[in-house]
Nucleic acid binder design. Structure first.
Lengths: 160, 160
DNA sequence: GCTGAAATTCTGGAGTG
DNA sequence: CACTCCAGAATTTCAGC
């Protein structure tokens, strides 16, 4: 990666685990002034190294009691599939969407209030993808040991 | 959820998409003083509603060019499996670990510098789980449309 | 990338309904 | 009890070097 040095990488590694750390503390860790850290952060965001920042939230507190992993087996490839999936990425229920190799070609992680919400979402998925979709495999996620680089027990340790 | 009102939920929803938003701006959005928002945040962290904060980083900038989804088919259930998986949750390469229902019983998302790193990790996984593991299915993640509530094309940064 | 000063934000305690 | 207000502390921000 051009224009990226070890201090940038260290900043990225720290920020992944402590997203709300202050520039001052970050500078202390990597031996840089807060202003320099800020300059580097702006550079990293501009370059796309940092896509955004997020809080890791227990969905139950948002009344989302069903967390689901969908595996999508798609029939054909094409740019239209990515466009359809991008629409679903905008949904409030969707946490993550990946394109993958292997037996299935797309993964969606999403959260719902109940099974009805999940079924409605799956229906929309089937309708939107139409003939491109061969089948959906889904699993309920009933325990989260780590998510977005944040370990379960490391903070509020509630469901351990 | 007891002791959680609509303003708490709104705070959680905003924080998921803008993890580095200031207390002042957050207070502006939900019509509360910064001090009140701070009190609520401390409550939410204490309750375990917020597990932590994270930056969504493009792994290529950390020289991790291989992102992988592992699906683990396990033979038996037991507390030892969760203990083993917890050890793997501490690995620097591991982004997320879920326990699921369905054909496979655990999901691991991880990043590696190359295929050798991936293979070494899979070996360790097999060795650690031993007889409990029936097989591993893995897929390369070659595109990320959304991750941790941050959409690919969007700037989910501080102000948005 | 640093400094230094100004603007902004954060923080804890006192006060109010 | 949760909220606001307020003052001091810390952080962020931006200019200039």
């Amino acid at each position: 990666m051009p224009g990226i040095d070890e201090k940038d990488r260290e900043i990225l590694r720290i920020l992944r685990k402590e997203g709300r750390i202050t520039l001052t503390e970050l500078g202390r860790r990597v031996n840089l002034s807060p202003a320099s850290v800020k300059n580097r952060l702006e550079k990293l965001e501009k370059l796309g190294a940092i896509k955004g920042y997020s809080a890791v939230v227990d969905p139950a507190f948002l009344d989302k009691y069903v967390k689901v992993l969908f595996l999508l087996k798609l029939r054909v490839e094409g740019p239209d599939i990515d466009l359809i999936l991008q629409k679903f990425a905008a949904y409030e229920n969707v946490e993550s969407i990946f394109r993958t190799s292997g037996r299935t070609q797309a993964v969606i992680i999403a959260e719902f209030e109940d099974m009805d919400g999940m079924k409605a979402f799956a229906s929309r998925l089937r309708r939107a993808l139409g003939n491109s979709l061969e089948y959906i495999e889904w699993s309920a996620i009933y325990d989260v040991l780590k998510e977005c680089w944040v370990e379960a027990g490391k903070r509020g340790g509630r469901w351990t």
